[in-house]
């Protein structure tokens, strides 16, 4: 900032009008600089959030299996379109959504694959003996010590068929027939109803 305004500096210091004017100038400078920092700072924060927000992969409802193909206590390994491995288990008798659970098979400890032990009603990670209950919560081993749990994916039952909201491969998948999230869901649904081969493997 340049303070060399000769008309002001030539006046004696402490004189009333000069003090008032200097205070006003100082106030305006601080207000201007503060406004600039606040305005452009906000823009910077928004830009940061814009860049950071692309974390979650897009998900779509995917057909898994018919519910009568999955007995109580059984689990199947399901490969989502993006290659993620999911464990889908029927945990109790019934045909409602809460009778089924879809959990990521990747152990949150160091990324090994867990498997379902029906006799013990638990998931077991062979790498470091991590144990998870049927809801995916770690109950023993290093994951329990860290308070971790298996990532859970939403499931739904629709007319005897089981669907999971699974991560999809890429935007290319979305381009098949989808313009919005709703149509994407419908497209997935109709493809499933048309008897498209399922990608699950028991």
């Amino acid at each position: 900032m340049d303070d060399s305004d000769s008309s002001h500096t030539q006046r004696p210091h402490g004189a009333g009008p000069t003090t008032g004017r200097s205070a006003r100038r100082l106030f305006l400078r601080v207000a201007m600089a503060g406004g600039l920092v606040a305005g452009y700072g906000t823009l910077g924060v928004m830009a940061g959030r814009f860049l950071y927000s692309n974390g979650q992969p897009s998900r779509r409802w995917q057909f898994v299996t018919t519910i009568d193909a999955l007995a109580v206590g059984d689990a199947i390994l399901y490969e989502a379109p993006n290659g993620a491995k999911l464990i889908i288990a029927r945990q109790k008798e019934g045909e409602t959504d809460d009778c089924f659970a879809a959990l990521s098979s990747i152990c949150p400890h160091l990324g090994c694959l867990v498997h379902w032990e029906p006799q013990n009603e638990r998931f077991f990670c062979p790498c470091h003996n991590g144990i998870f209950d049927k809801g995916g919560k770690a109950i023993s081993g290093p994951p329990a010590a860290a308070g971790q749990q298996l990532t859970r994916f939403p499931v739904k039952v629709d007319r005897g068929r089981l669907f999971v909201l699974a991560p999809v491969e890429s935007l290319l998948e979305l381009n098949v027939a989808c313009r919005s999230h709703t149509t994407c869901r419908l497209a997935g649904h109709f493809r499933a109803r048309a008897g498209e081969p399922r990608r699950a493997e028991v």
């Binding site: 928004m46 814009f50 950071y52 927000s53 935007l171 979305l174 381009n175 313009r179």
Partner: peptide
């Protein structure tokens, strides 16, 4: 992907 990526920017990406 062009249209979908613009739609993503417009509808989903924060700000």
């Amino acid at each position: 992907t062009a249209y979908e990526s613009v739609a993503y920017i417009t509808r989903h990406a924060e700000y």
